[in-house]
Structure formats: C-alpha cells, structure tokens
Design a protein around this nucleic acid. Structure first.
Lengths: 211, 211
DNA sequence: CCTGCCGTCCACCGATCGGTGGACCCGAGA
DNA sequence: TCTCGGGTCCACCGATCGGTGGACGGCAGG
C-alpha cells in the first residue's frame, strides 16, 4: 500500500482548468491529503493513475476523449487498489449507474460544499463509498422503480433521430427498416418513459442523460 | 478609483464551491490580483459588488436565484465602475448576448486555460473586453445571421410547454388563448429556428440555451 | 403619423402521429 | 427444451400537427 503516513495521495482529473485548480486548492489545504498529480482528459487520467498509483482519483464524468466512466473502468481493470471518486455537474445524469458499475467508489456533485468533497476523499480512501445525498436519493429511487427506464440500443437510436426532428418514415429510411418498426420502438420507449408524445420523450430522455 | 497600487480587486461569484475555490486559487497566485470577496449566488454577488466595490466581478452565468445576466445588469445599474467578467460552461449559450447586453465586459469559457482567465481579468480591469476565441466566433456568426434567432417571450413560453409534451390545445388552455394562437407562435418559432417540427425546435432551442 | 412587430384569432387541408392488435424470427437463459 | 425479450413488420383508425392565407388591435420607434 501507499501513503500510510504521507497521507492520502490524490490524482485530480478534469478538463476544466478552473475546476481542476479548485479541487487541488481545496484538497491541498488539508494536511492529510496530498495531490500528487493532475490530468486534463481521460487517457491522461488512466495513464497517470497507473504510473502514480494514487490512493484516490478524483475524476469528472464529462471529459473529452475518454469518458469518466470509461477511464474508471480502465483504471480498475488494471489496478483495483486505486479507488475512484467521480464528480458530476448534474444530478440527473444516467452515467451515475455507469460509473458505479465501472467501479467508482463515490459520486459527488460539483455543487457540493468543500467539506463534502474532502470528507468524500477520506471515505473513499478508507475503502468506503461516498455519495451526495441527492445522488443517493436518485439511486435508490431508480432501484425501486418497476421500469429500469433503460432503453434498448435501438430505442435510444430512434429517439436520438426523433430529437433531430426526423419523421418516423425518415428514421425508417435512415435505419433501413420500415416505418412500422420505428413506431413500435417509439411506442415502447414512450411506455418506458411514461409519456405519450415524442417531444416529451426526447426532453425526458435528455434530462436523464439517456441521449 | 481603487487599486492602482494594491492591484486588481476581484469579487468571485459562483454557486459551485469547487469552481469558486478554483478561480480564487488561480487568481490569488497572481501578485497584481487580490480576491477581496466571494459570493455563492446572484443576490449575494450584487450585494457584495455594491458594498465592496471591486474592480472586477468574475461571475458564473448559471446560479440559483438571480441569474448571472440579471446580477450583471443590477450591478452595472448601480455602479458602472464595477466591471463584470462572465464565465460559462457551454459555448452554445444564449445568455452570451444577454450578458453582454447587461453590461458584461467579458465572457470566458470555464474550460479556458488558467492564463486566459488571468489575462481576461487584467483586460477587463483595464477597461478592455475579454472574449474566449470560441465565444467571439459565435458572437460574430450570430451578428451576421439574417435571423437574430431571438424568440419573443410568448414564443419561448409556448416552446417550453411543447417541451413538456403538451399538445397545442393543452398549451392554449394553459395560457388562456386559442389553439390557433399557439400554432401561430409555434410556426413563427419554427421559422426563426429554421426547422419544421416541434421536437427539433425544442432540442435546438435547448442547445442554444433559449429554454 | 404611420410602419413595423407582437399577440391574438379564424378556416381549411393533407400529412404525420399515437395507439391497437396482431405477427414472425432469433438468440440467450431458465 | 421452451420461454422471453429484442427487433422486425403489417393494417387500420382517429387525433393532432404543419402549413396556408388571411384578419384585427396595440404600442413602440422612425
């Protein structure tokens, strides 16, 4: 293991320089936490996580190139000792599940107060799980939901084209299937989302980060 | 005036603690810049801007309560000596125009490198205008666009209800007008956005931050 | 003053959509 | 093995939508 007496060794990954500096500044003010590196995209995060072997990686979900989820998965694939704490701007983000499945040990909102972030890093370093209250709530409600509200790849694809303003027929042509098929997918998607019109379906799917 | 020899006095306003800390950390490392205060929402920003009278207010567009635009307008209404530098996460944000009309002296992306932010603060303090390259491009393209793509309040209102999945008739009832009126507003909005269906209109308006 | 722009409203049409109730194939897992 | 879920397709209906071509009042700016 690393850092029993040196404190918690942290790697910070975020594409926004401003945010990165913020996290570093907040964490550096804590005596038991040391920021040992930074990364500005997913690939860099993976690379540095594997070479520096920090105790905790604080990672933004949305990054150019490799997504936070994907980077998390790749890191944990190679080195399970490195724990990942994921940060997000929006609480309504479908990638919450993705990140947790990818092996993240925590999921916090960027809007969270400084103490929450710091406490989160300590929890994760200690092997515990750290979740923002808002995120925890969302997770629970998603677990008990009868509909996993997970769209099939095809449904998602159709919905994305709907979002672009295509008609059912046009979507059919684009996907090389009949209009009837498109309507079927769409109706199923409506059902899962609990709506009955295409526009609401699109906005809802966007809110949930399904698109 | 203030701060000829004390350096540039800055007030930082952002609802995200992490980002706020980041901006402060970045600016504080510059000898000619002093952060004299912070605010976590619009009202606070206005209040502190007027009492502290900083040279520059670095302000996020999206904040709970009072928007960045609104806060900017209110500050400049009372004290034109205070200049405002607005930060945004997305380059496709309709509030760019709003902020500039409100009297902002600069508009930067949060993704901007640290040097850009610092240079921006210096420029704005010197009375110049600071724009991110991406934002400047967008501004120009919007100026030369035949359609200002600005929806009337009523059109925006209708479009927002469309986004919620309401039918034209339902929207009419909600707004106490006839269905025909709703259709008129919608058609005009389609025209301005260059689309011909409600769903695309909504997604486009969202992309442009018009909703 | 009068020329826009905005908001309101009307009638009418064809096109598209939402919804029903089927059907078939296939691959994965019980 | 057989069931179940995803993906494909069909016909048919009423409802809604997109689009046209008007109309009228108000009020702000030239």
């Amino acid at each position: 293991m690393s850092g029993e007496q040196n404190g918690i060794r942290v790697l910070v990954a975020d594409d926004h320089a401003v945010v990165r500096a913020g996290i570093v500044a907040l964490l550096a003010s804590e005596p038991d936490i040391t920021v040992i590196g930074e990364a500005s995209d997913g690939e860099q995060a993976v690379e540095r996580a594997l070479t520096l072997r920090p105790d905790v990686v604080v990672m933004d979900v949305r990054m150019p190139g490799l997504t936070g989820d994907a980077a998390t998965a790749r890191i944990r694939e190679h080195d399970t000792a490195v724990r990942v704490l994921v940060l997000t701007t929006y609480e309504s983000d479908a990638s919450i599940l993705a990140a947790i499945e990818a092996g993240a040990s925590g999921y916090l909102l960027k809007a969270a107060p400084a103490e929450e972030l710091i406490a989160g890093v300590r929890s994760v370093a200690a092997g515990e799980v750290a979740l923002s209250p808002a995120i925890a709530t969302q997770l629970v409600s998603r677990m008990r939901a009868p509909t996993p509200s997970s769209l099939t790849p095809r449904e998602t694809e159709v919905l994305r084209l709907v979002a672009e303003g295509l008609s059912n027929r046009a979507i059919g042509e684009r996907l090389f299937v009949g209009e009837a098929t498109v309507k079927t997918h769409l109706l199923r998607a409506f059902e899962k989302l609990g709506v009955n019109d295409r526009t609401r379906a699109v906005t809802l799917a966007m809110e949930r980060g399904l698109l």
